Amino acid sequence: MAVSAASPSHAQASAFAGMAGTWSGGGTVTLDDGSNERIRCRATYRVIGASMEMVLTCASDAYKINLAADVVAAGGQVTGKWTESSRNIGGSIQGRGAAGSLQVVAEAAGFAANIALRTAGNKQQITLRADSQFRAANISLSK
């Protein structure tokens, strides 16, 4: 019984495995007119057991993302809330997570974005896809 009780707890924490700390790097953002811009990014993750607070800030000359999220992992599911302060929008996050990899959808009234995040060692890939002012972002970060 003790082994069985420990397993779900381990699975919950592993969704955010290796993410804690501060990351930086860059990538590209594709805007709704089809143009691409290079962006510089910084992400901070605070992991406490099965919960994580995330702040992601990215900027180019003409574009800025200020994304914050609070999420919890339970049984392979990830749920929580998010805000994007430069656009004054926020909503819910739902999806799946395991071993430092997340596949979630961030939703708000009239908005949805697919977010994929994969961490391997000191490297992290973040991909965002949406039908809004920005169509996509591809970000590579390192610790």
Rank of each mutant, 00 (worst) to 15 (best):
E84M: 15
R40Q: 15
T28S: 08
E53S: 13
Q94K: 06
Y45Q: 07
A74V: 12
A50G: 04
S86E: 15
D61R: 13
A17F: 05
I39Q: 07
A99T: 08
G26I: 05
D61L: 11
E37D: 14
S35W: 08
L31S: 02
V29P: 03
N66E: 14
N66Q: 14
G27W: 01
A98M: 08
V71K: 06
I39K: 00
S35H: 13
V78G: 04
T30H: 03
G80N: 08
K64H: 08
G97N: 01
S86M: 13
T30F: 00
R87M: 07
N88W: 01
T44L: 03
T57H: 11
M54G: 05
I65Q: 06
K81L: 10
A17N: 10
T30S: 09
R46Q: 12
E53F: 07
G97R: 01
Q103H: 13
A99L: 10
K64T: 14
G18T: 03
G18I: 05
V78R: 02
I93L: 11
T79S: 13
V72H: 06
M19D: 03
R87V: 09
M19Y: 04
T28M: 04
S24N: 10
E37V: 14
R42M: 13
V29M: 05
A98D: 05
M19P: 00
Q94E: 05
G49K: 01
